[in-house]
């Protein structure tokens, strides 16, 4: 058996290299998010946002941009035979789940590094909330990475895969979004970041991440068979 860590780094490095070379997912996600901010500017007819409105706009936009990346996550494995190659190799299949979830997590972090400052620039009066917001973003990214990888690996084997992924993923991330918006709302409130129930929401986010990473890890074997 090839050690899991070697397989994990091989698959992750392959994915990141291909993304860097083709730039298929990330620029599209960033562009999508930025344009969505502009649409919200006019849809809400507001030039500055705070509190629940700011939190809602930010998370709705990030979630829908994330769906673009989720949809593309396994396309190369499906169309270019990566699933078969990985199943023929002497590796633990969980390495594929871990590598793909890490790749998606990386995309989301990079997306947010670009897009959240733009959001602050467009709508926020001060950048003071960004530091604590980073903790919420990271925990939410982990949850989206876990569920997104799980759903995407199944959706890619279906017809209408671009439809099926978002369809199933959206209700699944509702609890994650409840916690993320709940934590962000006081952070983005007028008059500087507040920390009302910040710890509770971070705990909910962590619990969500933990449960779905475990579920993904446990069931992923069943998803690779024909």
């Amino acid at each position: 058996m090839t050690p899991s860590r070697a397989a994990f780094t091989a698959i992750l490095a392959k994915d990141l290299r291909a993304e860097l070379r083709t730039l298929q997912s990330l620029p599209a996600m960033a562009l999508f998010a930025t344009t969505t901010f502009v649409i919200f500017r006019f849809g809400l007819d507001r030039t500055s946002l705070s509190g629940s409105l700011a939190s809602g706009v930010l998370w709705a936009t990030l979630l829908f941009a994330a769906l673009l990346g989720v949809n593309r996550l396994f396309v190369a494995e499906r169309e270019e035979g990566g699933f078969d190659a990985i199943r023929l190799a002497p590796i633990d299949r969980s390495a594929l789940f871990a590598a793909k979830a890490t790749a998606l997590f990386t995309y989301l972090v990079v997306l947010e590094l670009v897009v959240v400052p733009i959001f602050a620039l467009f709508f926020l009066d001060s950048a003071a909330a960004l530091a604590p917001l980073a903790a919420v973003l990271l925990l939410a990214d982990l949850g989206i990475a876990a569920t997104g990888t799980l759903i995407s690996s199944m959706a890619v084997h279906s017809r209408a895969r671009d439809l099926l992924g978002p369809l199933v993923l959206l209700p699944l991330v509702v609890p994650l979004m409840i916690a993320a918006t709940g934590a962000s709302e006081p952070l983005l409130a007028v008059g500087g970041p507040g920390y009302h129930r910040f710890g509770t929401w971070l705990a909910v986010l962590s619990l969500y991440d933990l449960i779905f990473l475990l579920v993904g890890w446990a069931v992923f074997d069943f998803l690779l068979e024909d």
């Binding site: 799980l150 699944l172 994650l176 409840i178 709940g182 069931v219």
Partner: peptide, 17 residues
């Protein structure tokens, strides 16, 4: 199985909110 794990989490998050 995934949706089964989701049910209690969801109840918890909504109640807290």
């Amino acid at each position: 199985v995934t949706a089964g794990a989701f049910v209690p989490l969801n109840f918890m998050a909504v109640r807290l909110a």
